[in-house]
């Protein structure tokens, strides 16, 4: 099975965000691989191990961290990587999807995988927009796959742990929420090897346009501690207060 996995760099979810007008202040913002894309990669690697074939990873060069992200994917077992553009400004999900659709065009993939969502996708989900662009069937919120003959059986999570299975004729696009197994770790030495392997290709593209027809006019951070009564002081003061609260709630 020949598989493409689309990777996105997103603002590090553990970082505090600062704003600059109607956008994030991106000057000192750290980016990480979208966690759902990490699961998409894992599911792709598992499928390749089961069926043979290849995994090719794609990412837009919208952050400095993208190259390392692609090398890490190669070190984990992807056969090739393509970095689309360099030093690009952020572009909306529709614009990203259009770039991926063009890049995937000649790949002849059986399956295109990406994370089911990313935290910045205000105008729709890239995986499904790519499916629409390629005219392929898609299923989102996938939590496992089993390869079949000309098809793949996918498990989709509805909610509250309820799942449903589908048979999906190939080629197809899947939005992965969780891989069957936790994403694998890879040693730094292997990433260094990947850097020297020549498996990553830089593809020159122009700055893509936003294509969603959705314009952000304002951004706000939620008020600090809105709702919560904030406990002042150090961890000892916090523990004292929480103990009091537990007693007041009748559970101590």
């Amino acid at each position: 099975m020949n598989i493409a996995v689309l990777l996105r760099a997103v603002p590090d979810p553990v970082e505090e965000l600062e704003l600059d007008g109607a956008d994030l202040d991106r000057d000192f913002l750290g980016y990480v691989l979208n966690e759902f894309d990490d699961h998409a990669l894992e599911e792709g690697l598992l499928l390749k191990e089961e069926t043979g074939g290849s995994v090719t990873v794609y990412a837009l060069g919208m952050a400095d961290e993208v190259e390392q992200m692609l090398h890490t994917a190669i070190a984990k077992g992807a056969d090739a990587g393509k970095k689309l553009g360099d030093d690009l400004d952020p572009v909306d999900a529709h614009g990203q999807a259009a770039v991926f659709v063009e890049a995937l065009g000649e790949g002849n993939y059986d399956l295109v995988l990406s994370g089911v969502q990313a935290s910045d996708e205000i105008d729709g989900q890239v995986a499904m927009l790519v499916a629409a662009g390629l005219g392929l069937p898609h299923v989102s919120v996938v939590v496992g796959t089993t390869p079949g003959d000309g098809s793949v059986r996918v498990t989709k999570e509805y909610w509250a742990g309820i799942t449903a299975d589908y048979d999906v004729a190939l080629p197809a696009v899947l939005g992965i929420q969780t891989a069957r197994e936790a994403p694998r770790y890879v040693a730094v030495a292997r990433i260094r090897q990947a850097q020297e392997s020549g498996a990553l290709e830089d593809v020159d593209i122009d700055q893509p346009d936003n294509m969603s027809g959705v314009t952000i006019t304002d951004m706000r951070l939620p008020d600090e501690g809105e709702g919560a009564e904030m406990i002042e002081g150090d961890e000892e003061a916090a523990a004292d207060k929480v103990l009091e609260l537990l007693q007041a709630a009748g559970v101590r």
Binding site: E16, L17, L221, P222, D223, E224, G225, E226, G227, A228, E229, M230, I231, D234, E235, E236, A238, A239, K241, V242, L243, L245
Partner: peptide, 23 residues
């Protein structure tokens, strides 16, 4: 600024690894 403080009744902004052993 974590959104959890928007729904919590009480909050402490600090390191959970400092807090857990104390409690």
């Amino acid at each position: 600024q974590a959104p959890i403080f928007g729904v919590a009744h009480y909050g402490w902004a600090g390191d959970l690894f400092d807090f857990i052993p104390e409690l």
